[in-house]
Amino acid sequence: NQASVVANQLIPINTALTLVMMRSEVVTPVGIPAEDIPRLVGMQVNRAVPLGTTLMPDMVKGYA
């Protein structure tokens, strides 16, 4: 099963992502693939992302 990117903490709206904010986990539904974590660093979320939430492509500005 493919691992997805999951929020390791509450990520406030418009926050630029850092490695410490994300972890990989096998979840359903599948979100952004864990191998894209390096690409996500520095990108901003367009909404608040609660701890444990799977990051979906539409949550990250410029990802989709």
Score class of each variant (00 low, 15 high):
Lys61Asp: 06
Glu35Ser: 15
Gly62Met: 09
Val45Gln: 01
Tyr63Gly: 09
Thr54Trp: 03
Gly62Cys: 02
Asp58Thr: 15
Val5Met: 03
Met59Ile: 08
Val27Asp: 03
Gln44Glu: 08
Ile32Val: 12
Pro38Trp: 04
Glu35Phe: 07
Arg47Ala: 12
Met59Val: 06
Pro38Ile: 11
Ile37Phe: 08
Asn8Gly: 13
Thr15Phe: 09
Val60Glu: 01
Val26Ala: 08
Thr15His: 05
Thr54Phe: 04
Tyr63Leu: 06
Leu10Pro: 08
Arg47Met: 10
Arg39Lys: 06
Asp58Gly: 07
Leu51Lys: 13
Asn8Ile: 05
Asn8Trp: 10
Val27Ala: 05
Ala3Met: 06
Glu25Ile: 15
Val41Glu: 04
Thr28Ile: 11
Ile32Ser: 02
Pro50Met: 10
Met22Leu: 11
Asn14Gln: 03
Val5Pro: 03
Leu10Trp: 11
Gly62Pro: 05
Gln2Arg: 07
Gln44Trp: 13
Pro29Met: 04
Lys61Gly: 14
Gly52Gln: 14
Pro38Leu: 10
Arg47Lys: 14
Thr15Glu: 15
Val27Tyr: 03
Val60Trp: 02
Ala3Asn: 08
Pro29Thr: 13
Ala48Pro: 14
Val20His: 08
Glu25Cys: 02
Tyr63Ser: 05
Thr15Ser: 04
Arg39Met: 08
Met59Ser: 12
Pro50Thr: 11
Ser4Glu: 00
Val26Gly: 05
Val5Asn: 01
Leu17Pro: 01
Asn14His: 10
Tyr63Ala: 15
Leu40His: 01
Ser4Ile: 02
Pro29Ile: 09
Leu17Asp: 00
Met43Tyr: 11
Ala34Thr: 06
Pro57Leu: 08
Ser4Gly: 15
Pro29Arg: 03
Gly31Asn: 01
Met56Glu: 08
Pro57His: 12
Pro29Phe: 10
Gly31Cys: 01
Val49Phe: 04
Gln9Arg: 05
Ala7Phe: 01
Thr28Tyr: 08
Gln9Ser: 08
Ser24Asn: 06
Asn14Cys: 02
Lys61Met: 09
Asn8His: 11
Gln9Ala: 05
Glu25His: 10
Gln44Tyr: 12
Ala34Pro: 11
Met21Arg: 04
Leu55Cys: 01
Leu55Ala: 01
Gln2Phe: 10
Ala48Thr: 08
Pro38Asn: 13
Pro33Ala: 15
Met43His: 09
Leu40Ser: 01
Val5His: 00
Gly31Lys: 02
Leu40Trp: 02
Ile32Asp: 00
Lys61Ala: 09
Arg23Glu: 12
Leu51Met: 12
Pro12Gly: 09
Ala16Tyr: 12
Val5Gly: 03
Gln44His: 08
Ala64Gln: 10
Glu35Thr: 15
Leu51His: 14
Asn46Pro: 13
Gly42Trp: 03
Ala3Lys: 12
Val6Met: 05
Thr53Phe: 03
Glu25Thr: 07
Val49Gly: 01
Met59Phe: 09
Leu10Asn: 04
Met43Leu: 09
Pro57Trp: 11
Val27Arg: 09
Ala16Lys: 08
Val30Ala: 13
Ile11Arg: 00
Ile37Gly: 09
Ala34Arg: 10
Val20Gln: 07
Leu17Cys: 02
Val30Thr: 10
Pro12Gln: 13
Glu35Asn: 14
Leu40Thr: 03
Met56Gly: 12
Arg47Trp: 13
Ser4Arg: 03
Ile13Phe: 12
Ala34Asp: 08
Thr18Glu: 05
Val49Tyr: 02
Ile13Gly: 03
Asp58Lys: 04
Gly31Glu: 03
Pro38Met: 08
Pro57Gly: 14
Val45Lys: 00
Gly62Phe: 07
Lys61Asn: 11
Met43Ile: 10
Asp36Glu: 06
Ala34Gly: 11
Val6His: 03
Ala16Glu: 04
Ser24Ile: 10
Leu51Asp: 10
Val30Cys: 03
Thr54Tyr: 04
Asn8Thr: 14
Pro57Cys: 02
Thr54Met: 15
Leu40Met: 15
Asp36Val: 09
Ser4Cys: 02
Lys61Trp: 15
Thr18Asn: 11
Pro33Lys: 15
Val6Phe: 04
Gly31Met: 03
Arg39Trp: 06
Tyr63Glu: 05
Asn14Ser: 09
Thr18Ile: 10
Met43Asp: 14
Met59Tyr: 07
Ala48Asp: 10
Ile11Ser: 01
Ile37Cys: 02
Leu17Arg: 00
Ala64Tyr: 05
Ile11Phe: 02
Met56Val: 06
Val49Glu: 01
Val41Ala: 07
Arg23Ser: 14
Val6Trp: 03
Ile32Pro: 00
Val30Glu: 06
Thr28Glu: 12
Leu17Thr: 01
Val30Pro: 10
Met59Asp: 08
Pro12Glu: 13
Asn8Asp: 04
Met56Thr: 12
Pro38Ser: 04
Ile32Gly: 00
Val49Pro: 01
Val26Arg: 07
Lys61Thr: 14
Arg23Pro: 01
Val41Arg: 10
Glu35Leu: 06
Ala16Ser: 08
Val20Phe: 05
Met43Lys: 14
Leu51Glu: 15
Arg47Asn: 05
Met56Pro: 01
Met43Phe: 08
Leu40Pro: 00
Met43Ala: 05
Gly42Ala: 05
Glu25Leu: 10
Ala16Asp: 06
Val6Cys: 02
Val6Pro: 00
Tyr63Gln: 06
Ser24Pro: 11
Gly52Glu: 14
Pro33Ile: 10
Leu17Gly: 00
Pro38Asp: 13
Ser4Pro: 00
Thr53Glu: 15
Leu55Glu: 00
Leu51Ile: 08
Leu51Pro: 08
Met21Ala: 04
Ala16Ile: 03
Val49Gln: 05
Val6Ile: 11
Gln44Pro: 06
Ala64Trp: 03
Ile37Thr: 10
Asn14Glu: 09
Leu17Trp: 00
Pro57Ile: 14
Glu25Gln: 14
Ser24Ala: 15
Asp36Pro: 01
Val27Leu: 12
Arg39Asp: 03
Gln2Trp: 05
Met22Trp: 02
Ala16His: 11
Gly31Arg: 06
Thr28Val: 13
Val6Ala: 03
Asn1Trp: 14
Pro33Glu: 05
Met21Val: 12
Met22His: 01
Ser4Tyr: 05
Pro57Lys: 12
Ala16Thr: 09
Ile37Asp: 00
Met56Asp: 10
Ile11Thr: 03
Asn8Ala: 05
Ala16Gln: 05
Thr54Lys: 07
Val5Ile: 14
Val5Glu: 00
Ile13Glu: 07
Val20Pro: 13
Val27Thr: 15
Pro12Phe: 11
Met59Lys: 03
Pro29Leu: 04
Val26Cys: 03
Arg23Met: 06
Leu51Tyr: 10
Met21Lys: 04
Arg47Ile: 13
Val26Lys: 15
Ile13Val: 10
Ile13Met: 09
Asn14Val: 09
Gln2Ala: 08
Lys61Val: 12
Val26Tyr: 13
Gln44Ile: 08
Val27Glu: 04
Ala16Trp: 07
Met21Ile: 07
Leu17Ser: 00
Ile11Gly: 00
Met21Phe: 09
Gly31Asp: 00
Pro57Tyr: 14
Pro57Thr: 08
Gln2Pro: 15
Ala7Gly: 08
Val5Thr: 15
Gln2Tyr: 13
Ala7Tyr: 01
Met43Ser: 10
Leu55Asp: 00
Ala64Gly: 12
Leu10Ile: 08
Gln44Lys: 10
Gln44Leu: 07
Ala34Asn: 14
Ile32Leu: 03
Met22Cys: 02
Glu35His: 12
Glu35Arg: 15
Ile37Ala: 06
Val45Phe: 02
Gly42Phe: 04
Leu17Met: 04
Arg39Ile: 04
Ile13Tyr: 04
Gly52Arg: 08
Gly52Pro: 00
Val30Ser: 14
Pro38Ala: 15
Val30Met: 14
Asn8Lys: 10
Asn46Lys: 07
Val60Gln: 01
Asn1His: 12
Met22Lys: 00
Val60Ser: 01
Ser24Lys: 15
Val26His: 11
Val45Met: 14
Leu40Asn: 01
Leu51Gly: 07
Asn1Val: 08
Gln2Gly: 08
Ala48Tyr: 06
Met56Trp: 11
Ser24Phe: 06
Pro57Val: 11
Glu25Gly: 10
Asp58Glu: 05
Tyr63Arg: 01
Val5Phe: 01
Lys61Ile: 06
Val30Leu: 15
Ile13Ala: 07
Arg39Gly: 13
Thr15Ile: 13
Leu51Cys: 02
Met43Gln: 06
Asp58Ile: 13
Ile13Ser: 11
Leu55Trp: 01
Ser4Lys: 03
Tyr63Cys: 01
Gln44Ala: 07
Ala3Leu: 13
Leu19Gln: 06
Met22Glu: 00
Val49Met: 11
Met56Asn: 08
Leu55His: 00
Gln44Val: 13
Ile32Gln: 01
Val30Trp: 08
Asp58Gln: 06
Val5Tyr: 01
Leu40Arg: 00
Gly62Gln: 14
Asn46Asp: 11
Val30Ile: 14
Pro29His: 10
Met21Glu: 04
Tyr63His: 04
Ala7Lys: 00
Val26Asp: 03
Val20Ile: 11
Arg23Thr: 07
Leu51Asn: 10
Val6Thr: 11
Val27Trp: 03
Ile37Pro: 01
Glu35Cys: 02
Val27Gln: 12
Val41Leu: 09
Val26Met: 03
Gln44Arg: 07
Ile13Asp: 08
Thr15Asn: 07
Val49Ile: 05
Ala34Trp: 06
Val30Asn: 11
